[in-house]
């Protein structure tokens, strides 16, 4: 992997999204509204006025939006780029097709996640002014790390969707399943044993667990470190395994010309 090219392609992605966003202030405003709407939906599941509970929902809403967005957004954008005739030119960059595509969109997800995290600062301050700075840091950290673990899966979904020549991301049902299995919506302990085992394989499970512990004030540094290590390990493992499948997807894409 050419590091110089890798960094160059990240810069291309950053440049692309800054250029597009500066022309669409209305779109940016609407974008920022969504995490609050997710918050409302989370309240519907568990109405609560406990500040820590609200903060927990805020953290979950950021992660939910980040991870959902990644899973279907990459594929959805691949479809759009194909319709617009742009996809071949991204694929023809001198690196792997999935990398070129992901690096063009990764800055978008990180930027949006950071913005969404920042917009919750007033709410955090109102709920718990003493610890709001700490919570903000955690939010920012989650918004950055939250986008990473499912990147491999999002590429695979993109290839599968492109291959099938359907008009939508027909694998988007994976998103709520992953959220369910990760414990974002209900505690993992409520799931059947085989699902609980499956949840241990998902990096997002550990992120949601960290949120749970932080907001319940019951976490020791050791426990948190342990969870962070598990998160990193499962992220690397999952993306490594998926990378093999993604490579196959790339060959298939080039063999069949489904991106053209």
């Amino acid at each position: 992997m050419d590091l110089k090219l890798f960094l160059c392609q990240i810069k291309a992605g950053i440049f692309l999204w800054f250029s597009l966003y500066k022309r669409s202030p209305l779109l940016v405003s609407v974008l920022l509204l969504r995490p609050y709407l997710v918050l409302i939906a989370l309240f519907a599941i568990e109405p609560s006025t406990n500040p820590l509970s609200i903060i927990r929902n805020v953290l979950i809403s950021i992660l939910v939006v980040s991870s959902i967005d990644i899973l279907w957004d990459v594929a959805s954008n691949a479809l759009s780029l194909r319709f617009l005739g742009i996809l071949p030119y991204i694929i023809s960059a001198p690196s792997s097709p999935s990398l070129s595509l992901l690096l063009s969109y990764l800055p978008k997800y990180i930027l949006e996640s950071v913005l969404k995290a920042l917009e919750f600062l007033p709410l955090l301050f109102v709920l718990n002014s003493a610890q709001s700075a700490g919570f903000l840091l955690i939010l920012l950290l989650f918004s950055l790390v939250g986008v990473l673990p499912l990147l491999g899966l999002s590429s695979l979904i993109a290839y599968t969707v492109l291959s099938s020549k359907e008009e939508t991301v027909w694998l988007d049902w994976l998103a709520p399943l992953i959220l369910l299995v990760s414990g974002a919506l209900y505690p993992v302990s409520l799931l059947p044993p085989w699902l609980q085992l499956l949840s241990r394989l998902f990096p997002t499970t550990y992120l949601f667990e960290i949120i749970q512990l932080i907001t319940e004030n019951g976490a020791s540094a050791q426990t948190l470190l342990g969870l962070a290590i598990m998160y990193l390990t499962t992220s690397i493992l999952l993306n490594s395994i998926l990378y093999l499948l993604v490579s196959k997807g790339e060959s298939e894409l080039l063999r069949r010309g489904i991106h053209l």
Binding site: A44, I45, S164, E166, E167, T168, W170, L171, D172, W173, A175, P176, L177, L180, L185, Y186
Partner: peptide, 19 residues
């Protein structure tokens, strides 16, 4: 585009089931 329609239904039903 039957697959798209069916998958949309499955996604909706998962969300519905969750709530």
């Amino acid at each position: 585009y039957l697959l798209s329609i069916l998958s949309g239904s499955v996604t909706d039903s998962i969300w519905m089931a969750v709530f």
